[in-house]
Design a protein around this nucleic acid. Sequence first.
DNA 1: TGCTTGACTTAGCATTGATATT
DNA 2: AATATCAATGCTAAGTCAAGCA
Length: 524
Amino acid sequence: MLLFCQFLEHKGPYFPPEYQPLPDNVHFYYDGKKVKLSLAAEEVALFFAQMLDHEYTTKKVFRENFFKDWRKEMTQEERLLIKDLDKCDFGEMHAMHTAKVEARRNMSKEEKQALKEANQKIVDEYGYCLLDHHKERIGNFKIEPPGLFRGRGEHPKQGMLKKRIQPEDVIINCSKESKIPVPPAGYHWKEVRHDNTVTWLASWTENIQGSIKYIMLNANSKLKGEKDWEKYEVARKLKSCVDGIRNQYLLDLKSKEMGVRQRAVALYFIDKLALRAGNEKEEGETADTVGCCSLRVEHITLHEQLEGSECVVEFDFLGKDSIRYYNKVPVIKKVFKNLKLFMENKQPGDDLFDRLSTSLLNKHLSSLMPGLTAKVFRTYNASITLQQQLKELTNQSDSVAEKLLSYNRANRAVAILCNHQRAPPKTFEQSMANLQVKVCVLVERKKAAVKRCEEQLLKMEVQATDREENKQIALGTSKLNYLDPRISVAWCKNMEVPIEKIYNKTQRDKFAWAIDMTEADFEF
DNA sequence: TGCTTGACTTAGCATTGATATT
DNA sequence: AATATCAATGCTAAGTCAAGCA
């Protein structure tokens, strides 16, 4: 058992303020008649009223879940009266909320400053802890406020009431010798324990899925930094043995044992496409999403020939966060043949890998290399791709702007590999057009000062290219979680690009360990 | 062995805040 | 000074994976 810390002391979590009843001039109406709701029912009604601008309040599942949970919060009398959500009029409540948002936006400088200072006070009081006698920032020191659960994708529990957490729900973890956090006046903690084998400071069980939520340290803490470093060291170790592992799974494709062949094909996908492991999920509890091991027959289509390539596998499935994975990939013949076999006599809804699970796969992987799991391949492939792309795309003689475009292109290659997507920014088309206009206007107007302008023009064009290429791609996730920061630090040193151009403040904080220790000759 | 639970990382979207533009 | 724009930060849902249990 690993001893994480000798001494942990903190103030306990920050609780969001209690619900304040509606002012007298704001009413709820049912079937055209004014109804004064009980405090509990009113609070939940307001959650719904606040979301009315969102499309999902029109969704059947959302509305049904909300109404069912709302009725649970009503008094008997209210329940008897309020039986149809369609007859509920939240108009005044919604208007009040909109007005509040507006008022907040129109606050004076002084009011905004006062608010900021009040928030900072909360951070100062609750945002830090003492770990092994060093002051460390806590990542999420606030208890999650109540509201309506949304979830991602077609979540069967969307609209359910996420309940308010009381101190009685919260377990505190701190050192025996430390000062015990004092619960809010009139309350007590569910439990105070002294477990130095875990890293969380407080926890509670959330009522939607029944899962545990934790209060933990910020990514810039020593503890998280060391863990992060370890993660990349494991990925680097994979680099030294990946050839052997690849040869092994290519051989396994011919195994007499069906389970071994399935494992080999799954590993081929995880390695080549950076798919996630794909644990089984409880049906009906979450949105229907899959990863590698949980792929179903309906998620792939085999093409003997497609667009000039042979043995093409067409993937189409919803992955983590219900993000669609769509890809057409030529594969080697042995993989193709195996896939055909795995799909024989199966229904679309059947598991593609019926003899394989993530635990089986990971057990196999850890026998090949200590610490090796499916997700290490994602880290390894992401980092090695960045390094190789940087080498390929950048020249010492490029301008800083060009170098940055190259860096972002390398970063983008990784994001595409890992399928990190985002919704195109809402104002994308417009802002893109504006940028193009600016490029034109700039050329028009500044012909006289061509030389100075050309630099600016180039920079803007580079920016335009960058943004166009970035339309659907989220770079942050790979930068923060998959790319060994030392690759980027070394690149900056070599290319004489300031580190601030690549990493913002948060990222520099998180990767302080790498910025400090990395030399220009670092090799992943 | 398979299933459940707990602890932790990864992830996209919403909000905030800094900067550029009008 | 007001407004538009976009990057940074905050939030918390949704994954991964190992350990404990039946």
